[in-house]
Write a protein that binds this DNA or RNA. Structure first.
Lengths: 65, 65
DNA sequence: ATTCAAAGTCAAGCTTGCTTTACATTGAAT
DNA sequence: ATTCAATGTAAAGCAAGCTTGACTTTGAAT
């Protein structure tokens, strides 16, 4: 699973800290997601896409296997 | 978070077992998801929506808080 | 009334998402 | 050359998703 979180974040001029606060998660979580160390929960994925006014599919790119 | 998994499953004439197999998860997982005992991982959410040829947003209805 | 597939419950255990804390690196501005 | 905000790493622990296995309930068909 790939994601465009960093691109969206930068486009909105948010720091990782800003984003973490808006999403009500820790900064570590943002770092880990941007570095694609793990996938977000579906709840967090929804929060992220809502914040950026787009669909989950716009932010997260699913690749089988 | 609400979901329409059962509706989609029935529409496609799948049993819980069929669906579990196609998604490569246990039948317990299907039951738990249909009963909304917990949310799926985003990977599983993608698999489900792909199987039903729709978007994650079509199957899962996010409600804040 | 039985039977059988489908749907359901319960509980224990593993895996993965997320938090917290503490510390290190980068890079741009002065 | 320093400084400071932003980004990064590491590790331990809690919480949520998923599995397995064994057993129960439902309901439609014969």
């Amino acid at each position: 699973m790939k994601n465009n979180i960093k691109a969206f974040r930068v486009k909105h001029h948010y720091t990782q800290d800003d984003l973490a606060e808006k999403l009500e998660v820790s900064r570590q979580t943002i770092i880990s997601l941007e570095k694609e160390r793990y996938n977000p929960s579906i709840t967090l994925a929804f929060k992220i896409s809502r914040l950026f006014n787009c669909s989950i599919e716009d932010v997260f790119i699913y690749e089988e296997e």
